[in-house]
Nucleic acid binder design. Structure first.
Lengths: 205, 205
DNA sequence: CCATAACCTGTTCATTTGAACAGTTACACG
DNA sequence: CGTGTAACTGTTCAAATGAACAGGTTATGG
């Protein structure tokens, strides 16, 4: 069944509040927002929206409305990934200070767990062009995973975080730059690897 | 200040419930989950978490707890971008049905406005390898912007959405595939262009 | 030894909140 | 003309809920 104009407005308001505060408005708050003299008006609309299958809520439970729109149920929880300029060795838990910014992406798109230690680096230079990683790209990395041969990793070289490809060469782990102009091969010390690439975000223009 | 073990457990429980039901548990629900005989125990922990700055909540408001991620102050509003398998011509406003999924990213990372008509396509094949776009990548596009020469666009060719590079060749707009194996040049009909690429999201592995 | 904090029990109280009841107005439809 | 439905007003009620009060135990550090 189609939603009426008013019902769409109410639904939009609920969505808006949920995004702004991560909380559903109460019936009285809905009524106040639309200037209703009575909260029954809001309750009527919510009941209609429930009947039409776009809202869901546990009975007698405060602020329990949940949007079931075909779009909304595709949503995944969003994680905040800190973007570092460079990563000093050690990588303590509390490093908010050094964060240059923050990227928010839904978990599913990158296939990362909310508990994982995930961070991002903005790529400088074109040393990873062979892996189709460009200057300015944000590379999402996970700390602690074990790199497989061919994985892109962030490594600490000369006090600076650099992206390299992790390769097993005749059984020995080495780091390789993905650019013919920098054919550097570096032997791996365990502690140098700060994270393994799990995703990438590129902004064009 | 550091969180105690118990406080971490309570925080984890709140996170878990929020992920599962998109709703904060009430104090009594927290108490019940941990087997507390009194809800004051839960209230104490919540108060401690608030004091330590990881939780926030409006007073006297039901289920209003909100987790403050350390990067909270860096967060930007998140937009939901529908992912289409293919885009039929016309591109009506209400196309949620066709959406295959949904990507949520913060506005800032991609530099897109919340009002813009943005959508995503998952790349099939390696026809855009020359622009460092790989198979499986999600390309974020904006409908309605005017492409400049060199921009990547989604075009409708043979009833299917395809990614091409938009090029002005001797003054005439043509679409070019970025792969030597497909050197196709197609003259541009205005209506064929469905969106201009503004970003890219790649999931590794 | 004493202060402090974490962690808990048990209870009461004022608000918040969803739900229900009793109506009203306007409008589309047969 | 009646009938139904959307969209309201105004009010009452009981359950849900956060907050506060009055303690009790244990550990930690000065």
């Amino acid at each position: 069944m189609e939603l009426t104009k008013r019902q769409k407005e109410v639904l939009e308001f609920i969505k808006k509040v949920q995004r702004a505060s991560a909380q559903t408005p109460s019936l009285r708050e809905i009524a106040r927002h639309f200037g209703f003299g009575s909260m029954t008006a809001a309750a009527d609309h919510v009941r209609a929206l429930k009947r039409k299958g776009v809202l869901e809520g546990s009975p007698r439970r405060a602020r329990s409305l949940k949007i079931l729109s075909p779009w909304e149920n595709l949503r995944r929880p969003v994680v905040d990934i800190p973007v570092y300029g460079e990563i000093p060795a050690g990588f303590a838990d509390e490093r908010q200070q050094e964060a240059k910014g923050c990227i928010s992406v839904d978990v599913k798109s990158l296939g990362i767990g909310p508990t994982a230690r995930t961070f991002a680096l903005q790529v400088k230079g074109d040393s990873m062009i062979g892996k189709h990683i460009l200057e300015g790209d944000y590379v999402i990395l996970e700390q602690g995973s074990i790199p497989r041969s061919g994985d892109v990793v962030a490594a600490l070289i000369d006090q600076e975080s650099t992206l390299k490809t992790f390769v097993l060469q005749e059984g020995n782990p080495v780091l390789k730059a993905e650019n013919p102009r920098y054919p550097t091969l570096v032997p791996v010390h365990e502690l140098m690897i700060q994270g393994v690439m799990v995703g990438l975000i590129r902004k064009v223009e």
